[in-house]
Design a protein around this nucleic acid. Sequence first.
RNA 1: UGGCGAGUGGCCUAACGGUAAGGCACCUGUCUCUGGAACAGGGGAUUGAAGGUUCGAAUCCUUCCUCGCCAGCCA
Length: 563
Amino acid sequence: MSIQATPSPERGDFIREIVAADLRDGKHQTIVTRFPPEPNGYLHIGHAKAICIDFGVARDFGGRCNLRFDDTNPTKEEQEYIDCIQEDIHWLGFDWGEHLYYASSYFEQLYEWAVYLIKAGKAYVDDLTADQIREHRGTLTEPGKNSPWRDRSIEENLDLFDRMRKGEFPNGARVLRAKIDMASPNMNMRDPALYRILHAEHPRTGDKWCVYPMYDFAHGQSDAIEGVTHSLCSLEFEIHRPLYDWFIDNLPVPSRPRQIEFARLNITYTVLSKRVLLTLVKEGHVRGWDDPRMPTISGLRRRGFPAEGIRDFAALIGVAKSDSVVEVGLLEHVIRDVLNRKASRRFAVLAPLKVVIENYPEGQVEEMDAVNNPEDPSAGSRKVPFTRELWIEREDFMEEPPAKFFRLAPGREVRLRSAYFVTCREVVKDAAGEIVELRCTYDPATRGGDAPDGRRPKATLHWISAAHAMPAEVRLYDHLFTRPDPGADGDLFADLNPDSEKVLQGCFVEPTLAEVPVGETVQFERLGYFSPDPDSTPGHLVFNRTLTLKDTWAKLQAQGKQG
RNA sequence: UGGCGAGUGGCCUAACGGUAAGGCACCUGUCUCUGGAACAGGGGAUUGAAGGUUCGAAUCCUUCCUCGCCAGCCA
């Protein structure tokens, strides 16, 4: 998507209001934002919200949004993540152009700034262990104590920091700290660590460094280097802002970025925590980072969610500072809304029941014209073969139908979509009493789906010619967790939904479905939206259910059970 | 019992001193070759609480309550 200027909203969210004011007041001529992922996992829909805000604000005001990897911790970061993150952002519909950056590109500059602070008497090398530092830090209600190493000479600090860089000390032996205020009520200001020793291979800088800057020491300065004007992040960094500003105030940085925080996304029945998602992957609870049940961007993509829907969702939930939990139903509604307009309609039978049209000529094949998308006439139509033997959905027949069941039943006539009206004449059962086949008759005058005499069946069913049906595996997905607030009882994994994936074999789909490419989502009429899984091959078709259609019949049944 | 931040129908968001708006969800109907979609209508908020300022407060002030975040050599 190209970044283009659109009229700035009179009154947008609070961030856009700040940006608009800064532009109006001449504080900035043009604005720059950035999306700063740490390459330690896959992006999820919470990041998608942030991406839509970061890139969206820049776009709305004719500015620019950089992609900058916050790669300051080589023990957790991998090239695979760097690659997938870029793919996901592009798929979402955003582009950073030439502005791809890495915090690791600024390591030399950051090191120089650390030396600058030492020389200014504002940073020192601490020999305390991590445990001792913690003890000295105090608590939320008690001030901390100064480290005994806090007042080393500048010369000694310079020498020690230089030797830290040269690799003379093991991991954890020493740390460079800012000299601020051990009694600050803000824990972040109690002499925060700036650099730690990490003898680790970095995905981009290799073994060049063995000291790495902490997030706080890298982020704001990286923003300043890139000329970022508005550094948008989530609420948990609000408490870091005084420190963010302290570095900007005390360092000769080339620009003065402003950090603005917004509430991160929470969604019912889902967990948006990279740590938890990583565990789900590592412990094999899901098929991988891109499992269709995962809230990752790659998972949603594999599930069949269109990027447009995710963008619409981000726009709909808005931007604010209050913690909130969005109902997953809203996401699903937005996705259905996009898919209803865009998805091609097809026939597929998940649980097949054989139907034989007794009065239909054996061996005859008719090509029925089926509309591809009633919402979009330009989508045209396709030919679907009709023959004497068909598959219909098992759920579409009941031998003893309850009052509100409108579908097929003995003696009842229904419409086969885009084909004929058929009437059930006989139910064939096996020795066990299981229904194995329905004997029906059709009305030749109803070809195409309309009766000359104007009669209208209460139900219209989807169907597939048995001779033309393509076998397929279909994977049905449901929420990964059983409760809206997974883990609220303490054990997150106890809340995993054992039925979040159901794999159906022996499904049948219409022939055209063999050609749907991965990445496209179609509607199986009356069933829902489905998308081919990457596991799908010409010899073994596999479809993922993206979402069901809204199903008032299922709802009625559910209510009946409760009542 | 430290600091920072946030409280608006079930959920999300708006209202920028002028009398609570929209989306989702829910409920009714209409229509329909998807029990989908679409369309029409409906119920539901004394804006966390109590005071105060004002002709007038969700908006300003005070106190209180609740929730979130912060004590990594993670980001």
